[in-house]
Amino acid sequence: MANVIETNQLTKTFNSLMAVDKLNITVKSGEIFGLLGPNGAGKTTTISMLCTILKPTAGTAKVNGFDIVKEATQVRKSIGIVFQDPSVDDRLTGRENLYMHANLYGVPASEQKSRIEHVLKLVELQDRADDLLRTYSGGMRRRLELARGLIHYPKLLFLDEPTLGLDPQTRDHVWRYIRELKETHDITVVLTTHYMDEADRLCDRIAIMDYGKIIALDTPTKLKDTLEGDVVIVKTNNPDALSKLVAEKMQLKKTRTVNGTVEITVRNGENLLPRIVETAAQNKIHVESISLRAPNLEDVFLHYTGRMIRADSGKEPHGIAAIQRRKIR
């Protein structure tokens, strides 16, 4: 299988800030590759360099065999991009936006009409195609942008936070389109996300990024396997005391408190549940509930960085709220 993207020590600094630090990744043809990480990890900067929007400070990369600096125009012709922020003209109709894109990317005039019908159908927007974009909902705009990114039949599609700010139902829709694209059109997809479940369900391989570096790269299953265990979640009135107790008395080092609950990563967790409750009772700590779950990518991130996907950037309350909701549940 050929490599669609190859980066070689790709680096970007903004003044003194190291946004992307000597990145070496390869993306294979036909896969869905995810860049996962907190806000500010360097995901968008990486994509921007690969899309030729930003020039790297050092290092090189090839996209579809073209150098991102020396052959920027060829790179642009061969890729499709859906930006993180909306980039449609809301004073034009959906169809007009698509025609504009087709013309800018040199789609032959004879093929424009059929391709536009095709992508409109793909994202189920045929009925609204002739309405002005300003009358669209956020999810519909996102779908239109997705359709737009496909008109010129790119071999490689970049999606920067494709479902940011979308409701759960629309996110499901978008995920389905992305998978369909990969299967029916043989397109390679590179996406960034800070939604753990999105990366998990959608990607063939995931690179976890933090502070401009790749800290882990593998299939979602293998990433989760590195944790070697299940996660035990204990809800209690005194999480700090319990976590200390579990770590010291029971010799379970992978213990931490998260949002007022105690989480323990451990092999054969189901055998451990009674012992934890017992130990807690002996030490007069009240256990409200205890449960066991398979590890997720959030645990993987925590494992590699020692912290959760940063929730302090405040830029995207939607994502943070979503993560916190899942934690509480």
Binding site: C51, T52, I53, T73, R76, K77, I81, F83, D85, P86, S87, V88, D89, D90, H101, L104, Y105, G106, R148
Partner: peptide, 13 residues
Amino acid sequence: EFGFMKEILVAPV
């Protein structure tokens, strides 16, 4: 401000 400029600037023209 509305992001449309990005769509134009990244186009192969």
